[in-house]
Simulated scan of single mutants.
Amino acid sequence: MFVPGPVNIPGPVNRAMNRQNEDYRSPAVPALTKVLLEDVKKIFKTTTGTPFMIPTTGTGVWESALTNTLSPGDRVVSFLIGQFSLLWIDQQRRLGFDVDAVESEWGQGADLAALERRLRDDAPRHAIKAVAIVHNETATGVTNDLAAVRALLDKHAHPALLLVDGVSSICALDFRMDEWGVDVALTGSQKALSMPTGMGIVCASPRALEASKTARSVRVFFDWKDYLR
C-alpha cells in the first residue's frame, strides 16, 4: 500500500498557526472566509464551481458529495480499484444507493470499457444518476483518466453526474474541473495542500447545485444549502 498519510507541514504554515484562535462570530471570520472561497476555486481550475469548506476529513466530504446530489435508491456506477475506492463504495451502499461496483485488479485503473457498456445499455432510460471515481487511488498509486470518463459520458449524451475523489490528486496532479466536466470534486487539507488534517473542501458544478435542490438524501451538517445561506 502506498499511503502517504498526513504530509509534513511546512515550517511557514506551522508558524502561521502560532496565534490565538479567532472568535468565529467576529467580523474577521466571514471576511476571511469569502476571500478563501474565491481563492480555492484555483486549485480545482474552475470559474463556475461553488466551493464549500467543511471541518471534516475525506470521509465527510465523500458523504457531502453523495447526499447533496443523490436520493436513496439512485443507481451509482463506482470503480473498485483499491482500498479508498472500496471504502467510498461501502459508504455509498450504507447511504442507501444502488451501487454498481466495477471492479478491476488492484494496481489497474478504472475499467472504462465496462463503463461504456453500462452507458450504452442505460439508454434511453438514464437510470444511472452518477459515476463515482477516485482520481488517484492512493493505496495502489494508480491515477485514472478523468478526461476519458467525461468523453464517454458525452459520447453517449448521458446526464449522469461525475463525482470525483481528488483527495490525493488535487494540487499534486493535473486537475481541471471545468475542462473535464467534473460535477463534484473533493479534497482534504492534509495531502497536497500541506496543512493539518481536518478541513474538507468540496466544489460543486452548476449541475450539481441544481441536483441538490431535489436530492432527497438526509443531510444536516453537510447540507450545502446551509453553507450557501
Rank of each mutant, 00 (worst) to 15 (best):
L119N: 09
T143H: 11
H135Q: 07
A160G: 08
G96L: 10
V131I: 15
F97I: 04
D165R: 01
A151P: 09
A157G: 13
P159Y: 04
V131P: 03
A114K: 08
V131S: 05
A127S: 14
A148M: 04
V99R: 14
L163D: 08
S104H: 06
G109V: 01
E116S: 13
I128Y: 10
H135A: 05
Q108S: 15
L163R: 05
A157S: 15
W106I: 04
V164G: 11
A114F: 01
A130T: 04
I133Y: 09
D154I: 00
I133T: 05
V131M: 09
D145S: 02
T140Y: 10
E137D: 13
Q108N: 15
H158M: 10
D98M: 03
V164Q: 11
A148D: 02
D98T: 10
A110V: 03
L161C: 08
R120L: 10
E137R: 08
L163F: 04
A130K: 02
D165S: 05
W106N: 09
A160W: 06
D145G: 03
L115M: 12
L119K: 12
A148L: 01
A157D: 15
A151Y: 08
A157P: 01
A114T: 02
R120Y: 06
I133R: 11
V142M: 14
A101I: 04
L163P: 04
L115H: 10
A113Y: 08
H156E: 06
G107R: 13
E116P: 03
D121V: 00
E103R: 14
A160H: 06
A130G: 05
D165G: 01
V102E: 13
A139P: 08
A101F: 01
L95Q: 13
L163C: 04
G166Q: 12
A160K: 06
N136E: 00
H126Q: 14
A132R: 04
H156P: 03
L146Q: 09
I128P: 11
D165Q: 05
L146A: 04
K155N: 13
A132W: 03
A132F: 11
P124Y: 12
Q108V: 01
G109E: 06
D100Q: 14
D111V: 03
D111K: 09
V131D: 06
S169M: 02
V149M: 07
A101N: 02
L152R: 07
W106C: 00
V131N: 11
A139C: 14
D98N: 15
G166K: 12
I128T: 14
V149R: 07
H158K: 13
R118M: 14
N136I: 00
L115K: 10
N144V: 02
V102M: 13
L146V: 02
L163Q: 09
A160I: 03
L153P: 02
G96P: 04
P124W: 12
G166I: 03
A157N: 14
R118Q: 15
D154K: 14
K155F: 06
